[in-house]
Simulated assay, not measured.
Amino acid sequence: MVAKEFTVDLRKALVFQVGHLGKAYQEWVHQPIVSKEGPRFFENNILEFLTRTVWWAVPTIWLPVVCWFVVMSLRMGQSLLEVSLLILAGIFVWTLIEYCLHRFLFHIKTESYWANTAHYLLHGCHHKHPMDGLRLVFPPAAAAVLCFPFFGLAKLLTTATAAPAAAAPAFFGGGMLGYVMYDCIHYYLHHGNPSSNRAKYLKRYHMNHHFRVQTLGFGITSSLWDVIFGTLPPALKASQKSN
């Protein structure tokens, strides 16, 4: 007797359903539903509330934190020029982190119940419902937890390059600024109407990732690392050559 395949009921809370899809989860989650109305994740109202984040919460919460870390480096003796260079370095490193997270973690292949469930919460929901504006940016509580290991990484990188201890806060602040830019740009690419050529390119580049080739085009703020690591979609390679 052949077991009946599991079917997700979109009228019910989704999070504890998707794990039952097993191997079929990857195909299901990459068939987007284009609607501005997001699905319900949890039956519990408190958990459901915690999954929703307005985009402007990201700059409102994190830009003051960025400033605090930058000022910390200045007070510890770093010059304004040194701090400016550290901020730029932090933004640059963030673009690589952004690419690696998106490619190797957010698009990891899963099959088991809990792995599918975790992946759906982390990134799968965004691919299934790409126009859900309240589940596009990273929830601040989760971002706060990740600040600790990322600050440790900033200290490690600055120590490895023989930079003074005062360099780590500004470098970390630059990385956080890169993250804020990433989340705001990501939201704009889904819900904005770009007028500049660069913004139009980024929107086309990202929508290509969602609706055409979801295994390529992992950058958000830049296609730099896709070019370097050979994951730029073929259509965009052709357009770059023609330009």
Rank of each mutant, 00 (worst) to 15 (best):
M76G: 06
R75N: 14
V71I: 08
V66T: 07
E98T: 03
S73P: 14
V58I: 15
G90Y: 07
Y99M: 05
I87W: 07
T95L: 07
C67M: 11
W62I: 02
L88G: 14
V70W: 02
W62M: 14
V66H: 10
F69Q: 03
M72F: 05
I61C: 09
W94S: 13
M72S: 14
V58P: 03
G90W: 07
L74K: 10
F92R: 04
I97R: 05
L86D: 09
M72L: 14
R75W: 01
P64S: 01
M72V: 00
L86V: 02
P59K: 00
I91R: 10
L74F: 09
T95A: 11
V93R: 07
S79P: 08
L88I: 06
P59A: 04
I87M: 15
R75C: 08
S73A: 09
A89T: 02
V65D: 09
V70S: 04
T95N: 14
L96C: 11
I97Q: 12
I61P: 04
L85H: 08
L81C: 07
G77E: 01
L86E: 07
L80W: 12
V71R: 07
I87E: 11
L74E: 06
P59D: 03
W94E: 11
A89S: 15
L96M: 13
I97H: 13
I61A: 09
L74C: 12
L88Q: 12
I61W: 10
S73C: 07
L86K: 07
S79G: 15
L96D: 03
G90R: 06
F92E: 05
E98C: 14
L74T: 00
L80T: 05
E82Y: 03
T95D: 15
V58E: 07
W94F: 15
C67T: 01
A89Q: 09
L63Q: 06
P59F: 00
V70D: 02
L81H: 08
M76N: 10
W68P: 10
I97C: 14
V65Q: 11
Q78H: 06
V83T: 13
V65H: 12
W68F: 15
T95F: 09
V58K: 01
A57V: 07
W94I: 03
